[in-house]
């Protein structure tokens, strides 16, 4: 099978899981780029250079996606055939309540110290959701995994908002 058609995990030749060794991933990334980067084919023909560029872009994309936990989770769902853009079962009221609280807190925060505190609690919440997701993935509960993915998307949106606030301070 051509490597262009493989999924991210297959391309890097690692087992599909949420917990991965990031040092090993970056080592594999460098080895793959050593093999496919267009600079390796600078004196080759056009065809070879074009394919090298495509391959190198593909390796870059897979690396970006595997490196960050949220996109890694999305890759796992996609491999399992879940349409991640589709809606999941409604998120529980407790979670949504927590989201509203966090949003209000963020809107009210006016200095770096407060923002830093919110960042910490957000990071903790994300870490917890990811560890749940790892368990749920082990258990093979795809619907559960999809719900956790959606919750994490909410969390990441808050983090982005936080970045924006910090930059405008």
């Amino acid at each position: 099978m051509s490597r262009l058609a493989k999924n991210d995990f297959e391309l890097f030749d690692i087992p599909p899981a949420l917990d991965i060794d990031l040092d090993d991933l970056s080592r594999r990334y460098r080895m793959l780029q050593q093999a496919v980067h267009p600079d390796r084919f600078a004196s080759s023909g056009d065809a070879q250079r074009r394919i090298a560029m495509q391959m190198s872009a593909r390796v870059n994309q897979a690396y970006q996606s595997l490196k960050a936990p949220l996109t890694r989770l999305r890759s796992l769902l996609e491999i399992a055939g879940v349409d991640v853009s589709s809606a999941t079962a409604a998120l529980d009221g407790e979670f949504l309540g927590q989201q509203i609280e966090l949003r209000e807190e963020l809107a009210a925060a006016h200095d770096r110290i407060e923002l830093q505190r919110i960042r910490q609690s957000l990071s903790q919440a994300c870490a917890m959701l990811f560890s749940q997701a790892a368990d749920v993935h082990h258990a093979g509960d795809l619907a559960g995994l999809h719900v956790l993915y959606n919750k994490l998307q909410f969390m990441y949106r808050l983090l982005e908002e936080l970045d924006r606030r910090e930059e405008t301070l």
């Binding site: 051509s2 490597r3 391309l11 890097f12 030749d13 594999r28 080895m31 793959l32 050593q34 093999a35 496919v36 080759s44 023909g45 056009d46 065809a47 070879q48 074009r50 394919i51 090298a52 391959m55």
Partner: peptide, 24 residues
Amino acid sequence: QLERTAASLAERRMDVAINAALSG
């Protein structure tokens, strides 16, 4: 014409390169 004909060789060579890279 030559570049077009050479494309499939280029592609297969790339696959070999990747397999070799990951097997160390």
